[in-house]
Amino acid sequence: MKITAVRHCKAEGQESNAPLTAEGEQQAKDLAVFLEGQHFDCVISSPFKRAIDTIKPFAELRESSILVDDRLAERILSAENDPNWRSNLERTYKEEHLKFPGGESTFEAKERITSFINELQAKSYKSVLIVTHGNLLSLLINLYDPSFGFKEWELLSNPDVYQIDVSLKDVSKLWVH
């Protein structure tokens, strides 16, 4: 199975209902053109508005529906305002069971994305398009390329598109806007 994984386009914030910026809306249109010739058994998005709006132009172009799966939602590092969030996030890449108040550990987030992938495989999909968020995308890639960590997360942009061949455990970057 091949997963084409998209990090959402530029958004106005981190809240679940944050819309895309004007630039993000154009990126979503460009992404639709980029993906136009590809076939996917299904399109699945994070429930966050910015993720759904990222793939909406493609879905409209293809006249296909967008499935929503909560397991593609962004990972919450902590429910508290943390001025040291960046260094704490870096720590979680090395200490996978480290968990901050109200947050999700790297281990838990990887378990969540693994259950999602296992379900896709059980449905015998050959090619799936997903839209998610930077941190969860980096952890998904890390499952197949253990060298992909915090430093690589820092280099992600909005949007990035990666293809993951689950059976070959191969990851390749397809597109960056």
Rank of each mutant, 00 (worst) to 15 (best):
K2H: 01
A5L: 05
K10P: 03
K10Q: 12
E12K: 06
E12S: 07
Q14A: 10
E15C: 00
N17Q: 13
A18G: 09
E25V: 13
Q26E: 11
A28S: 14
D30R: 10
V33A: 14
I44A: 08
P47S: 13
F48K: 13
K49W: 01
A51G: 05
A51V: 11
T54I: 11
F58W: 00
F58I: 01
S64V: 13
V68G: 00
R71I: 09
R71F: 04
E74G: 07
E74P: 05
E80N: 12
D82P: 01
N88H: 15
E90K: 15
R91V: 09
T92G: 03
Y93D: 05
E96N: 12
S105W: 06
F107K: 08
E108A: 15
K110W: 08
E111R: 14
R112L: 11
I113S: 10
F116C: 13
E119L: 08
L129V: 03
N135C: 04
I141W: 03
F148W: 07
G149M: 01
G149R: 08
F150P: 01
F150K: 07
K151G: 08
E154Q: 05
Y162E: 10
Y162C: 01
Y162K: 06
I164N: 03
V166P: 04
V166K: 09
S167Y: 15
S167E: 13
S172A: 13
K173F: 06
L174R: 09
